[in-house]
Structure formats: C-alpha cells, structure tokens
C-alpha cells in the first residue's frame, strides 16, 4: 500500500469485537478497505465484502493437469517409446500406474495451489510491505478505511464510528 494513501485505522483487541465492528461500521455507509488480523477469523472476509476465493478451482485444475502429465509421460515411455513386456502384462498396464499417477496429481496440485496462492496475494521473497501496524502479527486487529474512497463521510465521522464500534485506538496513516 502506497504511503500517499490516507488511511484511518481502527485498532481492536478482540476477534469477536472486530467482527461485529465490521458490520456496524458498514451500516453507517463507510467502505472498509480491509481488516488485518493475527490469525484467521471465520466469516470476516465475507463480512468485509470480499468474494469467495476461487483457489479450490485452481487446485482442481492443477490436479487434472498433474494427472494428465503423469499418464501421458507413463504411456509415452511404456507403450510408445520403448515398450517392454514386464511380468507378462499389457504394455498399457493402467493399474500399475495408479501410484505414480496419484503422486503426480498430488505434486502438481500442491505446488500449483501454493504458487497461485502466493501470486494472488502478492507474496514473494523480498517483498517488504508497508505495514499499517506492527502489532497485527502479534495481538491486534486493525480495520483500515481508505479516506479517498469514502468521500461522502467525513474523517471525523469515520473516527467516531470506529470508536463507537469498540476500537481501542484510532490512528491515521
């Protein structure tokens, strides 16, 4: 987040309070940029208004890709490129290929999923985020409100709304 943006931050110290505060602040017509927490709070992302993630779809696609790659490699090597009779079985010995195909599927799903996750959240080694509050990764729950996106509500009203909803501190950054 760039330092030119103006944020008003409500700092809370309880997960239930911040969850209630989100709906309370939203009901006053204030748009919430995001809420930062030390651990996942169920339902918080939906309360803030984020859409449901499509990561599971990505994971499934990577799984299908892994399955296809594994089966293609095995059938190419065992049936087309250098067929050999092993244990009197068919060249296309599908039951014997289940273990490697399965491992390939899992491998592609796991790496595909994690890489997609990192890209979609802008996570990469060496990324130094402009943190809103250093206590977020310790014990504080921070609601960030972008002043520029809330032209209709005055900054003082935003601060008051945050205080009323149970914020222990209200900061400007």
């Amino acid at each position: 987040m760039s330092s030119t943006t103006n944020y008003i931050l409500g700092v809370y110290d309880d997960e239930d309070e911040v969850l209630h505060a989100v709906s309370e602040v939203k009901s006053k017509g204030i748009k919430i940029e995001d809420v930062f927490t030390p651990f996942p709070i169920h339902g918080l992302d939906r309360a803030v208004g984020h859409e449901r993630t499509r990561l599971p779809i990505a994971a499934f696609m990577f799984g299908v890709l892994g399955l296809t790659c594994a089966l293609s490699l095995i059938s190419y090597t065992m049936v087309f490129d250098w067929p050999m009779i092993i244990g009197g079985k068919d060249f296309f010995a599908l039951p014997n290929w289940i273990p490697v195909t399965f491992e390939g599927t899992v491998l592609f799903t796991a790496f595909g999923l994690v890489i997609t996750f990192c890209i979609s959240n802008n996570l990469y080694p060496g990324n130094q985020p402009d943190l809103l509050d250093l206590r977020i990764t310790d014990d504080k729950f921070v609601m960030a409100i972008n002043v520029d996106k809330n032209k209709k509500v005055s900054a003082d009203d935003i601060k008051k709304a945050l205080k009323d909803s149970g914020a222990i501190e209200v900061n400007v950054k």
Binding site: D34, V35, F36, T37, P38, F39, P40, I41, H42, L44, D45, V48, H50, T53, L55, P56, A59, T109, A110, L113, V114, F117, C118, S120, N121, N122, L123, Y124, P125, G126, N127, Q128, P129, L131, L132, I136, T137
Partner: peptide, 20 residues
Amino acid sequence: LGWTGSSKTWARYEYMSLIL
C-alpha cells in the same frame, strides 16, 4: 514473503491449508 495478515489473504490461506 511480505505477509500482511489481511482478511482476504487469511481467507485464501484457510482454503489453501484445507486443500493441502
């Protein structure tokens, strides 16, 4: 990796952990 703890990241993170 530049972790911020945003609610969106956490929601995706929960899904990722569950699938893994």
